[in-house]
Every structure is written in C-alpha cells, then in structure tokens.
Amino acid sequence: MEWTGARYADQPTVEVRTRIDAPPRRVWDLVSDIRRMPELSTELRSAEWLDGATAPVVGARFVGRSGHPSLGEWETTSYVVECAPCRVFAWAVGDPEHPSALWRFGLREADGGTELTQWMRMGPGRSGLSLAIDRMPDKEQKIVFVRLREFERSMTGTVEAIRKLAENAEGADA
C-alpha cells in the first residue's frame, strides 16, 4: 500500500496491490463488472452502465451511487478512459478532461496467477471533499490525509474480496 500527496491540489494518490492465485481473465471478469462492484466496496451502493453500454470500452459511461457516514450520499457519472482486457480498466469521475477522481485497476500475469493493483488519484476537478476543504481550509492536509486513509482501507478490502472470489471460483472450476 502506498499513498502520496498532502493537499488536494497536489492530486494525491493511493495504490494497493495483491497477488491472486487465478488467471488474469478470471480477475478481469470481476474488476470489469461494475454492477458487481457494490458488493465488494464499502462506499459504492450501485453502478449501472449508461447509453446501452454493457461492458467497459473507452468512452462508455456509467453512473455510480455512493454513501459515507460523514459525507452523505451522492451520485456520479464516470467515463471509461482506458480499457485493455485482462490488463487495465480505468475511469474518470465527472469530466474526463478534469475529473474529480481517476480510478484504475491494473492486472499483470505473475507466477501463474495475477498481480492486481487498484489505484486512485484525487482531483484535479472539485469533489465533495472540496466542499469540506472550503469550509475548513486550515484543516486541508488533515482532511486529505483522513480521506486517503479511508480510500486505502476500502481499496484493500476491495482487492481482498476480489482475490477471494477469483480464487474460490478457480477451485470450483477445477
């Protein structure tokens, strides 16, 4: 696990990784299924493709509905900005040219299994966190730090849930 940045304008990032005893195709099937993601995430409540899309492809859009005890509930539209099956699935939240966040799953074949990374970057566009910073600018670094730690915990849980599903499915397929 690693994260960088201290202020929102620095576009701080978080990355977590795990090794999965399953082939990249099986892991890809999980990370690219946005409708399944809510069961693997602590904040995402639902996700649905828009405009007739049924799978990730660059330019496809989806709506996500999220919730957090301190931040309330919100809805965002995301745009797929990178998609290479069994390798990378990335999306920009909000305006793809100036997103409030950029998220990415990376997959790499490793030792007969898959190394999975989940990465995110805050900003540069405004987000709900920007509103908290506007209200308490003197606490910006603490606000960003706390949110990065929350993302790190949540993302660690997400990649662990993906690992368990992929490995359990492998056992069932054998």
Results as ranks from 00 to 15, higher is better:
residue 154 S to G: 06
residue 109 E to S: 12
residue 92 A to I: 09
residue 171 G to N: 04
residue 125 G to Q: 05
residue 43 E to T: 00
residue 109 E to L: 13
residue 130 S to A: 01
residue 52 G to K: 04
residue 15 E to Q: 04
residue 26 R to L: 13
residue 36 R to Y: 02
residue 174 A to N: 02
residue 16 V to Q: 08
residue 73 E to L: 11
residue 22 A to H: 03
residue 28 W to S: 08
residue 27 V to D: 06
residue 94 G to N: 07
residue 51 D to G: 02
residue 150 E to T: 11
residue 16 V to P: 15
residue 87 R to N: 11
residue 60 A to C: 10
residue 125 G to L: 04
residue 59 G to N: 09
residue 124 P to A: 00
residue 81 V to Q: 07
residue 113 G to N: 05
residue 128 G to E: 13
residue 169 A to S: 07
residue 3 W to C: 00
residue 137 P to K: 05
residue 97 E to F: 01
residue 59 G to T: 09
residue 80 V to C: 13
residue 154 S to T: 02
residue 129 L to K: 05
residue 23 P to L: 03
residue 115 E to W: 04
residue 49 W to T: 09
residue 109 E to M: 11
residue 132 A to C: 14
residue 9 A to D: 08
residue 132 A to N: 14
residue 160 E to G: 00
residue 41 S to I: 00
residue 53 A to Y: 12
residue 105 F to Y: 09
residue 108 R to Y: 00
residue 127 S to R: 06
residue 106 G to P: 04
residue 125 G to I: 03
residue 102 L to W: 12
residue 86 C to M: 12
residue 30 L to A: 02
residue 5 G to D: 04
residue 169 A to C: 04
residue 39 E to K: 01
residue 13 T to S: 01
residue 54 T to W: 03
residue 89 F to M: 07
residue 83 C to L: 13
residue 61 R to N: 06
residue 132 A to V: 15
residue 9 A to E: 08
residue 68 H to R: 12
residue 75 E to F: 08
residue 58 V to M: 09
residue 161 A to Q: 02
residue 84 A to E: 15
residue 46 S to M: 03
residue 1 M to I: 08
residue 123 G to T: 05
residue 99 P to H: 07
residue 73 E to P: 15
residue 4 T to F: 05
residue 120 M to W: 06
residue 3 W to S: 01
residue 25 R to D: 15
residue 11 Q to A: 02
residue 117 T to E: 12
residue 91 W to K: 04
residue 70 S to V: 14
residue 42 T to N: 01
residue 135 R to L: 15
residue 156 T to P: 15
residue 88 V to M: 14
residue 123 G to P: 13
residue 40 L to V: 06
residue 32 S to M: 01
residue 137 P to F: 04
residue 116 L to N: 07
residue 70 S to E: 15
residue 56 P to F: 08
residue 145 F to Q: 07
residue 149 R to A: 09
residue 146 V to M: 15
residue 1 M to G: 11
residue 113 G to F: 03
residue 60 A to W: 11
residue 145 F to P: 00
residue 78 S to D: 14
residue 121 R to E: 12
residue 45 R to K: 06
residue 47 A to Y: 01
residue 49 W to A: 02
residue 85 P to S: 08
